[in-house]
Write a protein that binds this DNA or RNA. Structure first.
Length: 482
RNA sequence: CGGGGUGUGGCGCAGUCCGGUAGCGCGCCUGCUUUGGGAGCAGGAGGUCCCGGGUUCGAAUCCCGGCGCCCCGACCA
């Protein structure tokens, strides 16, 4: 019986494990519409915590939220040549409304640059209107061929920041700043280490000058692009005639940026920290940080135990710890333990008559270490520090795992062996040729995830392309990716 | 779109070869006994057997045609 209740292990079949975990923890479900997903309350709660943290970070960096419409006139998409080429194949188009054929078809937004910059053209007249720093939380639709819960679905939730600046330098600074915000969020909230850097032209956002991204390594050693930030230059400003009067009295096009993260982050969280028992949710993003499981036999014991549980709940809530008392009757404590472990709750408190009598409570951590009895005195501080430590340990363990599956200064034969083997991040010299990049992808299915930022680069800079041997123009990180 | 698999109570499956009107485990409901790592017993609810045709006295089962979903590949946050 025990076997049938266990998840497929990560080692046995990583993607089966992923799907089963999502079902078990009730994070999401398949919808009647192909490729779409229903985000269930347990999954949505994680997204809400992510939103809360990110939204605050956006506001702290001077951005305001707004909302732009779902429908975009088809002609808007075509205004920027590279943009339409990139997105046209994956758009859903509305041709009828109110029972009549529309004069102009409406595209369901795959991203909102076009409609937003059309509006910016109206709102921006002078350099005094800049910078314009706006974010929106929205759903978008991309008609993907193959979908996976959270990682790639036809419709997904995200935020997209869209800013306009007076100079190229300011736009570049914003692009980099928001990449940094994402990185901070991923490390400090998700406990997920990332490598940041620039995308090559082949992976660049359609219509952007430069694209930067945060790349994380999942437990199957594949890379996941977790967030992107684009310097759009004046490409969209020209297409939509977003101009402003400069202080000197001239007329110039604005410089734009856009940046986004999506519900894909929930998938990233699962594949970064989950284990064979289920989800492991970093404390800062957990819906419930602490679950209390009462234990009792008689009604009399129950009354005593529940009274203490209620008191615990009040105390922890007052300290802003998100706590839930699992008071369900008829479910044995052991069954509750398995359930909450599967759902990733960081800390569990078990409270029975013996604990009540002793003035203590049993603590079980989702990761690392055995159960231990704790005195009720000073419990809040103990739990807070346990969560802090857990966060740090998750981050460090993920970083260590990533480094253990990274190889630097690769030669071509090493690279092939590495990618064909367990995989991971391969650092090596890159000649800068798109043809070379394409050939590598063709032969190994590995792509350049990023040209890493300085702090991630190898101590010894490569001098030749690891594939073709010609002089290297940059160090690159290759990996197979989601 | 190519390859593979699969559609039978909420979930996982058996039954299909060899037609006879549907069963098992888990879950769910009620009651009693239980409760410190996935409870036991008793009773009970729940199914257009993916859809549409055909063959047959009779189809989950045989024949024809559709469709859905999952996994693996080519594209992507």
């Amino acid at each position: 019986m025990a076997e049938t209740r266990a998840l497929t292990t990560r080692a046995a079949d990583f993607s089966a494990w992923y799907n089963e975990l999502i079902a078990r923890a009730q994070l999401a479900d398949y919808s009647p519409v192909r490729g779409c997903m229903v985000i269930r309350p347990n999954g949505y709660a994680i997204w809400e915590e992510m939103q809360r943290a990110l939204d605050q970070m956006f506001k702290d960096t001077g951005h305001q939220n707004a909302y732009f419409p779902l429908f975009i006139p088809q002609s808007f998409l075509s205004r920027e040549a590279e943009h339409v080429e990139g997105f046209a194949p994956e758009t859903a188009v509305v041709t009828h409304g109110g029972g009549k054929e529309l004069e102009e078809p409406l595209v369901v937004r795959p991203t909102s640059e076009t409609i937003i910059y059309a509006m910016y053209a109206k709102w921006i007249q002078s350099y005094r209107d800049l910078p314009l720093l706006i974010n929106q939380w929205a759903n978008v639709v991309r008609w993907e061929m193959r979908t996976r819960l959270f990682l790639r679905t036809t419709e997904f939730l995200w935020q997209e920041g869209h800013t306009a600046h007076a100079t190229e330098a300011e736009a570049e600074e914003e692009t980099r700043k928001m990449l940094g915000v994402y990185r901070t969020f991923m490390e400090e909230w998700m406990a997920m280490p990332v490598v940041t850097g620039r995308k090559t032209d082949s992976e660049r956002f359609a219509g952007a000058l430069r694209t930067y991204s945060c790349e994380a390594m999942m437990q199957d050693n594949k890379a996941l692009q977790a967030g992107t930030s684009h310097n759009l230059g004046q490409n969209f400003a020209r297409a939509f005639e977003v101009t402003f009067q400069t202080a000197a009295g001239g007329l110039d096009h604005v410089w734009n940026t856009s940046w986004g993260v999506s519900t894909r982050l929930v998938g990233a969280l699962i594949m970064t920290h989950g284990d064979d028992a289920g989800l492991v949710c970093p404390p800062r993003l957990a819906q419930y940080q602490v679950v209390v499981v009462p234990i009792y036999k008689s009604d009399e014991e129950r009354a005593r135990v529940m009274e203490t549980c209620d008191r615990l709940k009040r105390e922890l809530s007052a300290a802003r710890i998100r706590v839930h008392v699992d008071a369900r009757e008829g479910t044995k404590p052991g069954a509750k333990y398995y359930e909450w472990e599967g759902r990733g709750v960081p800390l569990r408190l078990e409270l029975g008559p013996r604990d009540v009598a002793a003035g203590s409570v049993m603590l079980a951590r989702r990761t690392g270490g055995k159960k231990e009895p704790l005195p009720m005195e000073g419990l809040v501080a103990t739990l807070e520090s346990a969560m802090e430590r857990m966060h740090t340990e998750l981050l460090e363990a993920s970083r260590a795992r990533r480094e253990a599956h990274s190889i630097r200064g690769v030669t071509k034969p090493q690279f092939i062996e590495f990618i064909e083997g367990d995989g991971g991040f391969a650092y090596g010299g890159f000649c800068g040729s798109g043809d070379c990049e394409a050939e590598i992808k063709e032969q190994t299915k590995a792509t350049i995830r990023v040209l890493p930022d300085e702090e991630f680069r190898s101590l010894v800079a490569p001098t030749t392309c690891m594939w073709c041997g010609t002089p290297s123009v940059a160090e690159a990180v290759w990996s197979r990716a989601y």
